[in-house]
Design a protein around this nucleic acid. Sequence first.
DNA 1: CGCGATTTGTGCACGCCTTCACAAGCGCCT
DNA 2: AGGCGCTTGTGAAGGCGTGCACAAATCGCG
Lengths: 256, 256
Amino acid sequence: MSQHRHPGAPGRAGAVPALPDLPEATVARLPEYLRALHNLAETGHETVSSEGLASAAGVNSAKLRKDLSHLGSYGTRGVGYDVALLVDQIEYVLGLTQRRAVALVGVGNLGHALAGYDGFASRGFRIAALFDADPARVGEEINGLVVRHIDELPRVAVEEAIAIGVIATPAPAAQAVADQLVAVGVTSILNFAPCVLSVPEGVDVRKVDLAIELQILSFHEHRKASLTALPATGGSALTALPGGLAVTDPQEAIGT
Amino acid sequence: MSQHRHPGAPGRAGAVPALPDLPEATVARLPEYLRALHNLAETGHETVSSEGLASAAGVNSAKLRKDLSHLGSYGTRGVGYDVALLVDQIEYVLGLTQRRAVALVGVGNLGHALAGYDGFASRGFRIAALFDADPARVGEEINGLVVRHIDELPRVAVEEAIAIGVIATPAPAAQAVADQLVAVGVTSILNFAPCVLSVPEGVDVRKVDLAIELQILSFHEHRKASLTALPATGGSALTALPGGLAVTDPQEAIGT
DNA sequence: CGCGATTTGTGCACGCCTTCACAAGCGCCT
DNA sequence: AGGCGCTTGTGAAGGCGTGCACAAATCGCG
């Protein structure tokens, strides 16, 4: 790496930067770094060390440095990173320099909350339209936006330049909605419905299932409970099984 | 390989079977398998092949088989998996055989939605109490539950045997709430606030940040846009965009 | 009763991600 | 100007997860 320059960063003019293709794991952490950086900026920090930023973002400092190095590294050895510069850099890479328009489909329980969630606006997104299939809900105004019928999607999608679709419908309706979104050119979908969506190649789908998170926690609770119930030294019988026999059931009789 | 038995599966009496320590990635997929299995059961399937279940869950069949093999393998070669048996097995491993009580803290926009989300109840969780720090919200009834003041947490946590805490407060309040939850013995926390929580060892925290998901999608949108713009070999940057969506890129089309 | 079709369970290799450890670089102080 | 301490950036190693490919096992049928 010789002296590099911002690859098309905000200040720079000219050449399309050909975003470095970051590891997916890195991409998933960048927003967290960004949030931490905004906090630091608000509290008056102008520079921050990898150690400081890492702890603010809840990760390991080596990981953070490697992540940042992937996008061209703007640190100064012996000093740290310039907070403002890094914010610009990450926002650029994440494509947040343009405020993307989001269409939210499904204005039920969750949809209502999402429509009113100001975390979207503050992170560079604009909820541009609300849709629902239920005529009873069409016309309702939420947070200054009127709920439209899903059939209006094609027209509105063009008018508002919708870039991202959010599905907050019941599971049975989700696939049809996804198809409609794809049909109007949406290539990024955030799915809150508990089901798998099938979409053509080139369309990105991310899924958030609130119940799944709880179930994962439940597993760990269960595991912790079974660990505390088991005497530590007892039988090595059940743990040290290499590959052959599958599990067993010696330990019985521990009332809960 | 030899004749195995359900390691404490539903049929058995209150044994604590020493859960096999599953890979974290596997644990994260089990709930998805479970959901798919429930769907299959409702549509009358009694058995399912790894291929069928895999596609219903949106994963690769080899991965699915390996995942299931980790928890002791209940398939029949040449036939497939018994749906009902597998449901029991996964529910047992995930600790869903007991209905865990959830405390929800923060009854704002998102909290309201979560309190009314029936996906929790249907997956084996019971929202047992709602809390908020704002006196104006205390006393409100949501979905049959009365919002209590956060100071009542210690008493209620015991009464209701709270197992999991869900934080849906603004970010600045989240750490204090987490501390209070930990103080009353909660060891699993689902955090919706956009901030890092520090908790003592032994406490599990999972974070869900809706805005982060959007930012990840935004990155891919940005990347896709820069890709379609690049091969254009000079000239007009945005020639053939499908769907007529004007995905202009003010940032990366700047001439000198 | 044996054979073929089918499907599971898994050994193995590969690639990604994480973590360590350290050289290179930068600023500051003397 | 030179040296010293601090911090970044990165090579290398290790671990984890994924996917392939196949042997083992089971069922149904002739």
